[in-house]
Amino acid sequence: MSEALAPAVLATPRRVTEEAPLTRYLLIGVAVAFLGLFLLLPLAAVFTEALGKGVGAFFATFDEPDAVAAIRLTLIVAAIVVPLNAAFGVSAAWAIAKFSFPGKSVLITLIDLPFSVSPVVSGLVYVLVFGAQGMFGPFVKAQGIQVVFAIPGIVLATIFVTFPFVARELIPLMQEQGTVEEEAALTLGASGFRTFLTVTLPNIKWGLLYGVLLANARAMGEFGAVSVVSGHIRGLTNTIPLQVEILYNEYNIVSAFALASLLAGLALVTLGIKTLLEWRYAGQIAGRRRH
């Protein structure tokens, strides 16, 4: 790595706005070491432990009915949560980015709130609302609906946790793009919805896609909030992360990490697509800002 690096750095004469080569190497070294230690090593550990007893043991994990049920539940939850939050994100970004109104920053802060609420609290609030001792607990029970400790509770907690992802990705992007193009389209007689479809959407599609991907990764991987509302019924209300915990607690370390590697793989694919998008469509993604 350093051999490939050396000529590239030395070939260009040093400019006043650059650091001495030694400083550069040092900084690059620090950054690589830090990222390696804190990010790559845990990732490597997941895959190493997953394959620790061979490929056979790895794939055997996915034959277990409980694991299959967990994967199915996770997909169902994501399939409900992600479109809802995407629709909300687009609509919130439209209202916030294309118009100016008082109290906008308060609104943005409130949208951000789920980012910094502890996942445990995110789960707890739904127990307080819909639990048997909660405000609407008796009501939903009278309707014969099970919310907490069933799929609806898991969906609600996941919506809460992934609530801001799409909106947060789109707001800065749409703010940057302004309203000129939309105004032009409207002047030419396009309807509002048509304007959105043909003018706005193409401008934000990659940002939207990345927001959706991040929301999806988080929705499939959420642990704390889901753990509080799940009830842990095997084959019924365990999502992949909960199943990982169960397997881990059953001394089934290989299967736990095998299932975990599925989520880690999803994370990698998410990041891969994002990098690809950034590389091809730089400027159409605001993803470099905070999430």
Binding site: A132, Q133, V148, G231, H232, I233, R234, L236
Partner: peptide
Amino acid sequence: VQASHAGSGAQARAVIDGLA
């Protein structure tokens, strides 16, 4: 027969909160 396993106190809490 479905099974749910966790800490004993956590399970009692879940039943109180409506785990069926």
